[in-house]
Design a binder for these strands. Structure first.
Length: 415
DNA sequence: TCTGGGGTCCTAGGACCC
DNA sequence: TCTGGGGTCCTAGGACCC
């Protein structure tokens, strides 16, 4: 059996974990730039605040219902996630961390209620975060079980087994809520009067393969109890790494864009080194505000190749700036920019170039030292000069909570 | 005034190889 | 009358996930 643990309303629950005044009241967390609603406590859901909606559109709802609003605090959420995952690893041998708030658990050794319940209680006691656990024979079914656990079980746990019970559960499960059915497929299926997971499971396999590719077929089989997706215990090397931001204030200045893209590129380089790989190409993009119909839209995107795959900040930043120079247009007002490094290879499989002019070993040692200093003393303590010091493009974060678990000055004090 | 930031996989078609 | 059979690599577009 496979368990799926999912933290309830994760970001909102993290805010709540350190602030008892937020118990039983509506809480929401906003995306970067305080843009959209990306997490809601149950109370916030029930007053009608929708997922993903721009915050300014629900201003009235927020005021009327005294909703507590937070800017997203990824230092806090990342650390709380780490804590949850470590607890799971102490309880279950094989854990797949699937996202910041979800993990698949290998329960082939045991899947009895009491044990699963004790895991849930341990997480709650140690982190103050409520979680739901669904258990079933395949990943896709455990996703279904998790939804049921969250919505209709009293203790946050649901074990889905036995053909009769599975069929019954699927009969009441909307096809659109299945793992792997997105908006497009849901619409397509609805057009064919396929509304429940059970109806989907009964569809002709050839039709599914033709219209939803092999992944549709896999989902169908998983719903029948046949495993198609294995637990992935080892974390996979990322093939692409992206750092992008919308700007708090729109930017025209080339110099400011250089600072922003240098910072994004440098962040990509750091992430590359963290996963011990090099990239062989880099893409830069700069975009205007798509919601502003009064301006001419510009979506500029450019990819450049490295002769030798690299994770060196200086090289990557230099290439990003080179790309920017080629696509930047004077007088255009940019809202968002980003850097993607791609086609990564592991450090020890890099194809060297015969005509390479860079002393790679020396540079590698330099990057090592930079990473050490920045880990110890804070991100960007040592940086590339072109990143600048102003951060004029910085995010809007007007309602940031303290970093309760990662910053000494923010630790809670009992008075 | 205001609208997020990351990722993956699959398929078809084109270009090329022998 | 009749025009093979086996590959690879790359890219764009479309779908999905959190």
């Amino acid at each position: 059996m496979i368990g799926l643990l999912d933290c309830n309303n994760f970001y909102a629950s993290c805010e709540r974990a350190f602030n008892p005044l937020l118990k039983n009241v509506p809480v929401i967390v906003l995306s970067n730039n305080d843009g959209c609603v990306i997490a809601r406590s149950n109370e916030a859901k029930s007053v009608g605040i929708k997922m993903g909606i721009p915050a300014f559109k629900v201003k009235d709802l927020i005021e009327k219902n005294h909703v507590h609003v937070f800017s997203s605090n990824y230092a806090l959420y990342g650390d709380m996630s780490e804590r949850v995952m470590n607890i799971l690893r102490s309880e279950v041998e094989n854990v797949e961390v699937y996202s910041i708030d979800e993990a698949f658990l290998d329960l082939s050794e045991f899947a009895d209620r009491d044990r699963v319940k004790s895991i849930r209680e341990k997480v709650l006691k140690w982190t103050n975060l409520p979680v739901s656990i669904g258990v079933a024979a395949t990943k896709s079914l455990s996703k279904v079980a998790n939804q049921i656990a969250k919505k209709s079980s009293v203790d946050g746990i649901y074990i889905l087994e036995g053909d009769k019970d599975i069929t019954k559960a699927l009969k009441h499960f909307p096809v659109a809520d299945l793992w792997g059915i997105g908006r497009r497929y849901a619409r397509k299926l609805k057009g064919l009067k396929i509304n429940t997971a059970l109806e989907f499971r009964n569809l002709n396999e050839n039709w599914v393969r033709k219209n939803m590719s092999v992944n549709g077929v896999r989902l169908q089989k998983e719903l029948k109890g046949e495993k198609c997706f294995d637990l992935e215990i080892m974390s996979q090397r990322k093939k692409n790494i992206c750092t992008s931001r919308s700007f708090g204030k729109e930017i025209q200045s080339y110099t400011r864009l250089v600072e922003a893209l240098s910072s994004f590129a440098s962040s990509c380089a750091m992430k590359l080194r963290l996963q011990k790989s090099c990239c062989s190409n880099i893409s830069v993009f700069i975009l205007t505000n798509p919601h502003n119909s009064n301006i001419e839209q510009q979506h500029s995107y450019l990819t450049l190749q490295f002769d030798t795959p690299t994770s060196d900040s200086m090289e990557i930043v230099k290439m990003a700036v080179k790309g920017l120079k080629m696509i930047y247009k004077k007088g255009v007002t940019y809202k968002k920019a980003g850097v993607i490094v791609g086609n990564t290879t592991p450090n020890n499989q890099v194809q060297m170039s015969l005509f390479d002019k860079i002393k790679r070993n020396k540079r590698k040692r330099l990057m090592n030292s930079v990473d050490k200093i920045n880990t110890l003393m804070g991100r960007n303590t040592v940086r590339i000069a072109s990143q600048g010091y102003g951060r004029k493009w910085k995010l809007r974060q007007e309602r940031l909570s303290p970093c309760y678990t990662t910053c000494f000055s923010d630790i809670l004090k009992a008075v």
